[in-house]
């Protein structure tokens, strides 16, 4: 319980750090977003609206740094992430709310799949060193050094095109409206296959390599020898004795690398034109839409922190030592 509270405290601190960084970046922005917006919508915005816009974007320079920091927190407390420049006047939170579920679905499925498959392969190749699985190692290191997005490009070239069953872009067929019907869900799944497979293939090898190393280390422990000597079945020693203990570092590694994985997923979305937060981020970069970029950073950070906390819970369940009180 104490450990859980410590972790919770750490995540709260990290969230605070992310929000503060976000705020500070906003205050070093070059130029004046309001005048940029006015130039873009020349003639459409009443000049008397400038003052209210300035206040709206939180650019009131008369406020002290501390004062605007406090009002920034006040805005966040109301779920107000500002207003998007590009899709003026849609609030950033509405935009992110539309795109986020797709990203969560894609990242969630792909990450869990790749962790399970990769760890499984790692268990086998670590247990049987010198068997055919060792041949996977060079291939794995090659795959793990390919950028996600490039693998996505290749996947599109190879697997899609006229006559192919797999679609190469979008998260659902254009023209459908997102509703919970079987046909729509099926369509969405069909669109998710290639992007998810891309992420699985390129992240899997990392889990495999680290799990293999841990298995090799664990295999030479005395308790494994004892388990063999007791005459336990090969399978039982491998899974319940070796893999059970080798798994723990991999789980904490899983939590820590979620941030990297999410970043990689953004690129896959861009390549596949998948309607997720990554695509939204690309549009924001293209249009210098700072409120949108910052909103995305903040929401993604919070999501990663939440996922980390879940991984911590899993670790707590798997490792009895952490449950000791006192």
């Amino acid at each position: 319980m104490r450990r859980l509270l410590t972790r919770l405290g750490f995540y709260l601190f990290t969230a605070w750090a992310a929000i503060t960084i976000n705020f500070l970046i906003a205050h070093t922005l070059p130029g004046d977003p309001v005048s940029a917006l006015l130039a873009k919508y020349a003639g459409q915005i009443n000049s008397s609206a400038i003052a209210s816009l300035t206040a709206l974007f939180g650019l009131n320079k008369h406020q002290s740094l501390w004062g605007s920091y406090l009002s920034y927190w006040g805005q966040l407390a109301h779920g107000n992430l500002g207003i998007s420049f590009t899709q003026f006047p849609t609030p950033v939170s509405t935009l992110i709310g539309q795109y986020l579920p797709w990203t969560l679905f894609l990242v969630g499925t792909a990450t869990v799949l790749s962790f399970v498959i990769g760890t499984g392969l790692g268990v086998i190749s670590g247990w049987r060193r010198g068997a055919w699985t060792d041949g996977l190692l060079p291939a794995a290191s090659f795959l793990s050094s390919i950028p996600y997005f490039w693998l996505g490009l290749i996947a599109i070239t190879v697997f899609t095109g006229p006559g192919s069953w797999l679609p190469g872009s979008f998260s659902f067929s254009q023209g459908l409206t997102p509703v919970w019907t079987t046909s729509f869900v099926g369509d969405a799944l069909q669109h998710a296959i290639l992007p998810a497979a891309t992420i699985v293939v390129s992240t899997m090898s990392g889990w495999m390599l680290s799990m293999r190393n841990m298995m090799v280390t664990v295999t030479s422990e005395d308790y494994i020898t004892v388990a063999h000597a007791k005459g336990l079945s090969e399978r039982r020693v491998m899974l319940s004795y070796a893999a059970r203990n080798a798994l723990l570092p991999n789980i904490s590694g899983f939590a820590l690398s979620l941030g990297f994985i999410v970043s990689g997923t953004f690129l896959v979305e861009i390549v596949f034109n998948y309607q997720g937060v990554g695509l939204l981020l690309l549009q924001a970069i293209g249009a210098d839409d700072y409120p949108l970029m910052q909103g995305i950073f903040l929401v993604i950070t919070l999501a990663v922190l939440a996922a980390n906390f879940l991984a911590d819970l899993a670790y707590l369940i798997l490792d009895p030592r952490t449950r000791q009180e006192g």
Binding site: Y11, F13, T14, A17, A18, I21, I25, L256, L258, G259, F260, V262, S263, G264, F266, L281, I285, Y290, M293, Q294, I296, F297, I300, T301, V304, L305, N308
Partner: peptide, 13 residues
């Protein structure tokens, strides 16, 4: 903290 923060969006910003 630096490990957990998603680096790419931060870098992009």
């Amino acid at each position: 903290v630096f490990l957990v923060l998603p680096a790419l969006p931060l870098l992009i910003i």
